[in-house]
Amino acid sequence: MITDAAPVDRRARIQGNVDLCIALAGSGGGIASGLVMTATSYATLGITGGLLALAVIPFVLMRTRT
């Protein structure tokens, strides 16, 4: 969707940047979850992940109402 909306002459560069951001987010999430698991427990990791997922709901609702 992002590259489809981009000008043709910039699509490859934008796709590369998007791929980089996705890879960094995935590796950062893996590192963070490993640190949480080491410091606490799987239950804490699950609860934290659930709370973060729930925190997105108000932003989605605000976005759909405008």
Rank of each mutant, 00 (worst) to 15 (best):
T3C: 14
D9M: 11
V60S: 08
N17D: 14
R13Q: 15
A6Y: 05
I2W: 15
V56G: 03
L20S: 01
L35N: 03
R63K: 13
G46Q: 00
R10N: 12
I14N: 04
M62F: 07
A6H: 06
D4P: 12
S41A: 02
L20W: 15
S33E: 07
A23N: 05
Y42D: 09
T64R: 10
L24C: 06
A43H: 00
F59L: 14
R65F: 07
V56M: 12
R10C: 01
R13V: 04
D19K: 10
A23G: 00
D19W: 00
L54I: 10
V60N: 13
I14R: 10
Q15G: 04
L52Q: 12
I57D: 13
N17T: 03
G29I: 09
T40D: 10
S27C: 10
L24P: 11
F59E: 02
A25S: 13
A39N: 09
L35P: 00
M37G: 01
G46W: 01
G16R: 08
P58I: 00
L51V: 08
G16T: 12
L51D: 08
T44R: 06
A25K: 11
C21F: 08
R10W: 06
A32S: 09
I31W: 04
G34S: 10
N17I: 01
S41M: 01
A43Y: 02
S33L: 15
T64Q: 15
D9E: 15
A12P: 03
M1P: 13
V8E: 15
L35G: 01
R65S: 14
S33I: 13
A39L: 06
A25Y: 05
D9C: 10
T44C: 00
G26R: 07
Y42Q: 12
F59C: 14
R65Y: 04
V36M: 02
A5I: 13
G26C: 06
A32P: 03
A12N: 11
L54H: 04
A55L: 11
V60G: 02
Q15M: 12
S33R: 06
P58F: 00
A53R: 07
T44Y: 01
G49L: 02
P7E: 14
G29Y: 02
D4Y: 11
R65A: 13
S33H: 05
L35M: 09
I47N: 13
A39E: 07
A6I: 12
G46S: 07
S33V: 07
T44H: 02
V60F: 03
D9Y: 00
G28F: 03
V8H: 15
A23P: 03
N17V: 02
G49D: 02
L54M: 15
V18H: 12
V56N: 14
L61Q: 03
G50Y: 10
L51Y: 06
V56Y: 05
T38C: 02
A53K: 09
D4C: 11
R11E: 08
D19L: 10
T44S: 06
T64F: 12
Q15S: 05
L20Q: 11
P58D: 08
G34F: 05
R63H: 10
V36G: 01
V18S: 07
V36C: 01
A5W: 09
A39W: 04
A6P: 04
Q15H: 05
T38H: 08
V18Q: 07
A6N: 07
L51K: 06
R10P: 09
I31T: 08
G29A: 15
G34E: 04
T66Y: 10
L54T: 05
I31Q: 11
A53L: 15
Y42S: 08
A55H: 14
A53M: 15
I47S: 04
